[in-house]
Each structure stands twice: as structure tokens, then as C-alpha cells.
Simulated scan of single mutants.
Amino acid sequence: MTSIRNSVATVEERILDAAAACVLAYGVDRVTMTEIARRARVSRPTIYRRWPDIRWVIAELLTVRIAGVLDGVPEQGVGRAATVARVVAVARHLRNDDVVMSVIHNAPAIAMTYIADRLGTSQQILVDTLAEAIKAGQDEGSIRAGDPRGMAAMCLLITQSTIQSAQMVGDLLDADALDTELGLALSGYLKP
């Protein structure tokens, strides 16, 4: 019988927690499977059975953290105002996530994959969730007509840029002002 302590979910959580600790302690480029295994109290083969290399571990770590933020910021109703408020709240949480920001700022090769080349799993989750909210807002009448997925993708681009580049305009926009401006940009984009 498998104990709860050694269940697959618990082992994977320990590995990802260890990976997060390594990212914060050493930076993404210096994280090793050996150090993750040591911190998670598992063998390296245990990690390799789940992920083929360190890039996959980091990608899964980002997916779990970003999806976790989305889960942690519940829907606040239907319509443009509620949708925008949720997106702004998710963006703020991600800007304050040390692991996510460390990857964005200290691992440009990994970050650029998801900024310029392709959507990652977490970005797909965000687009899907936002497309559903946009469709509901369209049905309710507070969001303009259009393809919900395309509009969600555009909202992702707008929001992602504020997450990635917030420090660049930090002297011009503090966190509250950035949230306000992001909200206005999204609300204006979605307005009928």
C-alpha cells in the first residue's frame, strides 16, 4: 500500500517546491537536477521519470504557479468590470511571484520561448479561461462582439507585457497605478 507521504502528487509537489527553492537560491541557470533531488529528498531518476530535463521541470513549475494564481483569484461575477478586475488581480499576483519574475528576468532563453515563440500551457489555460469570461460578458452585453479566443489572446499580450516590463516603468507607475492603467486598457479594449 502506498502511503500518502509518498504518493505521486506529493512527490511531484516536493520536486516542484524544491525547484522553486533552487530558482530563488541560485537563479534558473544554476539549478541542477542533483540539487532539486537533494532538496526534494528523492533520487535523480525519480525526477527523470517525470521530466526529461531541467527545462521541463522549470516549465512545469511555471505552469503550476501561474495556474495556482488563477485558481487563487476567483471570478467576481460576469461582465467586463468583473473580467478586467480578475485579470488585473492575476497580473498583480504574478508580478509579486518571486519565482515567475526570476524566470522572466534571469532566464531569457526560457522566458523568450513564451514571450515570442509559442504559448505555454499556462498561457493556454489563461486564454481559455479568459475566452469563457469574454463570451459570458458578450452574452451579458458589457463586452463587444468578436471572437472570444482572439480577444483573450490580445488581452494576454497586453497583460503579459505589464508583468514582464513593470520594473521598466516603475518610476512612472507604481503598482497601484500600473493596475489602474492596465484595467483602463483592458476595459477600453473590451468595451462595446
Rank of each mutant, 00 (worst) to 15 (best):
Thr159Leu: 04
Asp171Ser: 10
Ala175Lys: 08
Thr63His: 11
Thr63Lys: 09
Val57Thr: 06
Ile163Lys: 06
Thr180Ser: 13
Ile125Val: 11
Val31Tyr: 07
Arg44Ile: 15
Ile66Ala: 11
Gln124Ile: 10
Ala152Asn: 01
Gly77Met: 05
Asn6Lys: 12
Ser165Ala: 09
Gln138Ile: 02
Leu62Cys: 12
Arg50Ile: 02
Arg92Met: 08
Arg80Ser: 10
Met101Thr: 08
Pro74Gln: 03
Ala152Glu: 04
Gly137Trp: 00
Ala85His: 07
Gly72Tyr: 01
Arg41Phe: 04
Ala145Trp: 13
Ala111Met: 00
Tyr48Pro: 01
Ile104Asn: 00
Ala21Met: 10
Asp98Val: 03
Ile36Thr: 08
Gln167Trp: 14
Leu24Ile: 15
Ile36Glu: 00
Ala136Arg: 14
Asp97Leu: 04
Asp17Tyr: 04
Val23Met: 11
Glu12Phe: 07
Asp29Met: 13
Leu94Thr: 07
Ser161Glu: 13
Asp171Gln: 11
Gln167Asn: 15
Pro148Ile: 04
Gln124Pro: 09
Ser161Asn: 11
Gly120His: 00
Arg86Glu: 07
Ala185Asn: 03
Gly188Ser: 05
His93Asn: 11
Ala175Trp: 08
Ala175Leu: 07
Glu60Thr: 02
Arg118Ala: 15
Ser7Cys: 09
Met112Val: 05
Gly150Phe: 04
Val100Ala: 01
Leu182Phe: 08
Val90Thr: 08
Glu35Tyr: 05
Ala40Asp: 07
Ala25Cys: 14
Ser43Val: 09
Ala109Ser: 14
Ala166Gln: 13
Leu173Trp: 13
Thr180Lys: 01
Ser43Tyr: 07
Arg144Glu: 12
Asp17Asn: 13
Glu12Arg: 11
Pro148Ser: 01
Ala166Leu: 11
Asp97Arg: 04
Val84Gly: 03
Ala21Thr: 15
Met168Arg: 13
Glu132Asn: 09
Ala107Lys: 07
Thr63Gly: 13
Thr63Asn: 15
Gln167Lys: 10
Ser43Met: 13
Arg92Tyr: 02
Gly79Pro: 07
Gln160Val: 03
Arg65Thr: 00
Ile104Ser: 06
Ala19Leu: 05
Glu75His: 04
Glu13Met: 08
Glu75Ser: 15
Ile115Met: 07
Arg38Tyr: 02
Pro148His: 02
Glu132Arg: 14
Leu190Gly: 00
Ala18Tyr: 01
Met33Glu: 15
Met1Asp: 14
Val64Ile: 08
Leu182Ala: 09
His105Ile: 00
Leu62Gln: 14
Thr159Met: 06
Thr83Phe: 05
Val169Met: 10
Glu12Asp: 14
Gln138Phe: 02
Ser142Cys: 08
Val103Ser: 05
Ala21Glu: 15
Arg38Leu: 10
Gly146Ser: 06
Met154Trp: 02
Arg30Asp: 15
Thr180Gln: 10
Leu61Pro: 01
Val42Lys: 03
Gly150Val: 14
Gly120Met: 07
Pro74Met: 04
Thr180Cys: 06
Ala131Thr: 04
Val28Phe: 07
Val78Asn: 00
Arg14Met: 10
Met101Phe: 01
Ala85Arg: 05
Leu190Glu: 04
Ala116Asp: 07
Thr46Trp: 13
